Amino acid sequence: MSWSAFLSKQSLPPVAATPYLAPATHLAVVRASGEEAGHYLQGQLSCDLREVDQGAHLTGMHLSLKGRGLVSVRVVRDGADYLLLTPSGQEEPLIKALMKYRLRAKVEFTLAEELAVILLAGNLPDTLPGPGQALRNDQGLWLRYPHTEHALLLASSEQAEVIWSQLASQHTPASANSATLADIEAGVGMIYPGAEDLFLPQVLNYDVTGGVNFKKGCYTGQEVVARMHFKGKLKQRMQRIDFTANIALQPGEVLRDGAGKAAGEVVISANTANGSAALIVLRRDTDGILFQEETPLNSQLGTLPYPLPWKE
């Protein structure tokens, strides 16, 4: 039975108490291979591939010339290759964007359809690497989150059902919603379909999480990003909100404050046990009371697992 067929036969709750596991089907995987893959990606992504080569996994963006994220990835080394985890629906745009500047570079990009991605929350195995690090074992390639007790497992699709059953002995199975919720809890913002060309890396807090490096050298959009870092002052950053209104939020959607003014844009949202949570790019002065047009979200500011470095 295929991994997707196995999941379709499961009756999984949208939310489960920690510890839990969930299929991270909100992510797709692209493989970058070839002897110049690392060098090429270093010039296309905002993060520093040298840290990835030393065992880390990092978020990063491929930017427009205006410095806004067109696509985003979590990049990790897999032998001689690199794996790029990107929001589902963005895998083809990611390949197209990275191929644009390839010319004669010895690098190829392919969909890694042979891999299944599983999210583990709480009660992480003792054999996992340290926060922000990656490690391969007999189950697959593990990526431990840097700020929270979450980890991703990239496993062979052929073995995913067996591994799922093993992990389920100590973790409650939950649906893909819980994997998205884990990213919200971890403060991991990415460029989802509908939010392309909106956000600087710093706006999604990549300067906090290692997703942008200001010393690595040139990459597409680097000048705008560096200018904001060294000379500018951000007026908005990604924050978490919790809300109880029965409203579906879409990536890139504009939310408003009580005066009807634009307060920020949606990054991603998910259901919680008591309503919903979302990552929203918000103005610094926003109180967290937000509206979808004139409909109140019944929202309040939540917390992120890392501090935000607002400049005075």
Rank of each mutant, 00 (worst) to 15 (best):
L12E: 13
L12D: 11
P14R: 11
A16Q: 14
Y20R: 13
P23H: 07
A24D: 08
A24M: 05
A24H: 02
T25P: 03
V29E: 01
R31I: 11
R31L: 06
R31Q: 13
A32Q: 05
G34A: 06
E35G: 11
E35A: 13
H39N: 06
H39R: 03
Y40H: 05
L41N: 05
L41F: 09
G43L: 02
S46A: 15
C47Y: 09
L49M: 14
L49C: 11
R50Q: 12
R50W: 01
V52T: 07
V52M: 08
D53N: 14
D53S: 14
D53V: 06
Q54A: 14
A56S: 14
A56E: 13
H57L: 03
T59F: 03
T59C: 11
G60V: 10
H62P: 01
L65I: 10
G67D: 03
G67A: 07
R68P: 03
G69L: 08
L70R: 15
L70P: 00
S72M: 12
R74L: 05
V75C: 07
R77W: 00
D81Q: 04
Y82I: 02
Y82R: 12
L85H: 10
L85Y: 05
T86H: 04
T86Y: 04
T86C: 15
T86V: 15
G89Q: 09
Q90K: 13
Q90C: 15
E91R: 13
E92R: 15
P93I: 14
K96E: 15
A97F: 10
L98Q: 04
L98E: 01
K100D: 03
Y101S: 08
R102I: 06
V107S: 01
E108L: 07
F109A: 08
T110C: 00
T110E: 14
L111I: 13
A112N: 06
L115Q: 11
L115C: 08
V117Q: 12
L120H: 04
L120M: 15
A121T: 09
G122T: 10
G122I: 07
N123E: 13
D126T: 06
L128A: 02
P129R: 05
G130H: 08
G130S: 12
P131V: 09
R136P: 04
N137H: 08
D138S: 13
Q139G: 00
Q139K: 14
W142I: 03
W142R: 04
W142V: 06
Y145S: 10
Y145C: 05
P146N: 03
